[in-house]
Design a protein around this nucleic acid. Sequence first.
RNA 1: GCUGGGGUGGCGGAAUUGGUAGACGCCCAGGACUUAAAAUCCUGUGCCCUUAGGGGCGUACGGGUUCGAUUCCCGUCCCCAGUACCA
Length: 894
Amino acid sequence: MDERYFAKKIEQKWQRKWAEIGAFNAETDETRPKFYQLEMLPYPSGNLHMGHVRNYSAGDAVAWYKRLRGFNVLHPIGWDSFGQPAEDAAVKRGVNPRTWTDENIEIMRGQLQRLGISYDWRRQMYAHRPEYYKFDQWFFLKMFEMGLAYKRMTQVNWCSHDQATLSNEQASGGLCWRCGNPVIKKDLEQWFLKTTAYTDQLLDDMAEIEAGWPHNVLKRQSDWIGRSEGAFVEFEVSASGDSLFYCPVVDGITSRSDQGKGRIRVFTTRIDTIYGANAIVLAAEHPVIQANLDNFAEDVTKKIAFIRVENARPADHAVEIEKDGVDTGLKAVNPFSGEEIPIWVGNYVMMEYGTGAVMSVPAHDQRDFEFANKFGLSIPVVVEAENKDETDSTKSVVTQAFSDYGVLVNSGEWSGMQSKEAKSEMAAFANAKNFGEAATTFRLRDWGISRQRFWGTPIPIIYCDKCGVVPEKYENLPVELPDNAPITGTGESPLSKVPEFYQTACPKCDGPAHRETDTMDTFVNSSWYFFRYTDPTNESMPFDPETAAYWTPVDQYIGGDDHAVMHLIYARFWSKVMRDIGLVKFDEPVKRLLTQGMVVGETFFDDESGKRIYFQPADVTIERDAKGKITGARSSEGKPLKYAIERMSKSKGNGVDPDEMVEIYGADASRIFVMFAAPIENELVWNEAGIEGAVRFLQRVWRLVYKWQASIRRELSDDTAPSVEARKLRQKTHQTIKRIGDSFESLQFNTPVAALMELSNAIGDFGVEPDAATDADVFAIRESLTALTLMLTPFAPHSAEELYSIIVDNENGMIANDARFPDYNSELAKPDEIEIPVQINGKLRTRIAAAPETSNADLETMALADEKVREFTNNKQVVKVIVVPKRLVNIVVR
RNA sequence: GCUGGGGUGGCGGAAUUGGUAGACGCCCAGGACUUAAAAUCCUGUGCCCUUAGGGGCGUACGGGUUCGAUUCCCGUCCCCAGUACCA
């Protein structure tokens, strides 16, 4: 082997060797502790991007580290290979989605292999293969039996331009996220999974994973679930000329009272403030409003229509919409006070939340306050702070609602009670009097999984004229996708155009029947894929429960935080269902979660056209000032360019091809750089300049090993006394072993790389040349080079293997085979002498050298005796001396 | 707006959670080697003052607590992410 570092040559060599011995093939072994390292599976879009490289480099570092620590590691990869881009490609280019997908997987697998990620390739799962999606269907049937899968009519967001259904997120602001055209509501029969059956568990079980998940992810999940404790209260509609008005009975929104009058249900978290209600405010879409549009005065109806349009909120969350509303002329009776209050329509009330109706309590709710102010409505105060100064009612100018708890006033028989206590009692009272009850509402909705798409798992349901909705039989699974469906992108299910697919016999009566032609949301596939890895070829079950019991739950999951909510809530839901089926025995599938930041790119724009044309290419001249700060950039023709940082993507032309990186710098250098450049949870601004540093580092290590190669292979006698040099190097080695172990436990990847660089610098600075080295010197060098090489493995496995084979001088001595993380010896890590900074009045003035065990008293004496210190303490009174053991001495003088 | 996380050299970022601020790397400058370049190696590199020895300032800004604050407390400004006018 050459003394120069040829990345490509050694990378291919070790990838081949690992494959030969099946180095990363995981087998169940009850005698060894297991570790399940998982990264979010990629969508096979065609190419890896740097975000993938970051994700999989981090995962591989953990997998290697745990292997070096003696764990039996499961580190699998698979393909999230169902989804819309395959259909788009089919529409655009007429290719078969399956062919397109399979080709992309081949390309991306090659890229991952060239990066040398240590996967057990035998365990790949492919969402689009019948062997896998058969069990999506299996789970669906189980859930159908359990009452967790059901079908109902629902309104979906529909973009008539794109001919597509949209999720609420995609239809935010009432406009299609893709084309910007208005979104309409369309009625469709859809299948749902009852995520709401697990709402409480999804919230409460967070306690089990709290220690291992990012705080921010748990927060977002609990916001998403959105529990709020309160009560429903029904207000009777009481307008004079009652007959004019119509109150349709809509379950959960309105009801009919004993007197035959309609009641409007409101949800409130503050039933204690109900005596302060000055109005009922309804959403414009509320059924009572819609049913009476013809009965209102003409200008009222007009205003309602206006509000409905204006109510479409802009996508920018920071923009607050001005309150607007109109008095309908209808009245409602406060069931507590008997008071008659007006019914308004308000733009700040959402039909999608609660019942689409609120009781407006302006004195104690900021939004109601603003509304009442704008329209000059009364603002009756019913809660006062115990410390009266805080209550706005006592001030001459009221600018804000008082929304804290306090003492009830002007609240009939409840006056004088603590408002917090009154909440439950008033809810109980409402219940007893039959006009309300305590209730908890959630934002979480059941999971609509029907998609009018081709490239997804067919829903295994059959519709029979005689028997109705009939589940497919388990033995008939999988219900396979046909190969000849016309994919037009027109929004109707392509499967509904394939009679061979949908024409079938009823599993119950054997009569003619037709299949469901919708497919499942792709999030279904990713909700349980990581269980499949434990038993990827099982034909009768999703996986064998016993095998899975060894490997699962996942010990460490790593992926982008864009999946913090949906994917991770669905996966948690799925695990709970699997637990209830009896497949697993735990509540939570992922013990520890790490969310990595995005990789973004620096882009240079043409200043005139605004076109993105350059991404750090060679033909851009970056202009800097004397200190190296970027002041601007010019194209090769001398055009000034604008500079911006954006998410990397092909379409923006600022993407970096990982293959190119590997080709130029090597997989190891690319991986080290990505790990070193920024903390994993931060956004990473891609800047290729830094990668040279990673290459230089590897080359330095390479040269060091070659420099000492001959010496470290020689026989060493242990009777030479170690030099100061040797003792210092051993210290550094053992300190580094400690640091790197700690870093991995706390999932830091940038600092251990820095620690490795420091260690290699220390070896490079070793004051003795190989020919002059004593046995003790060589021993220290060998120890540190071996440790350095082993600890390099998680970041640069190919280089580590190559260097290790040189150090141990043994063809069979592979790290992947049997090597262990170096042992830490705390005695050796201890320095002989430490430097103690001496401060005077908190300012650093000098340092003194001392043995680590020096007592506080001795340190104090030494510090005071120091010449430099005496200069400062001369003619002054020493008031106090603070000694921090092994840290510093601070002398306070006056 | 609300919630969460932040603000440290020209840049990415360290700092044992109250104890030497700026590790490590990039950039930049100077030097060695070379006919030259590349590569490599060495030196310098927070800012200001000083011939030197050294001194002063410095972790967004203003206060506070402390022998000592990047770290804790109060106030202000700014950035990023999430978000739902959620009743």
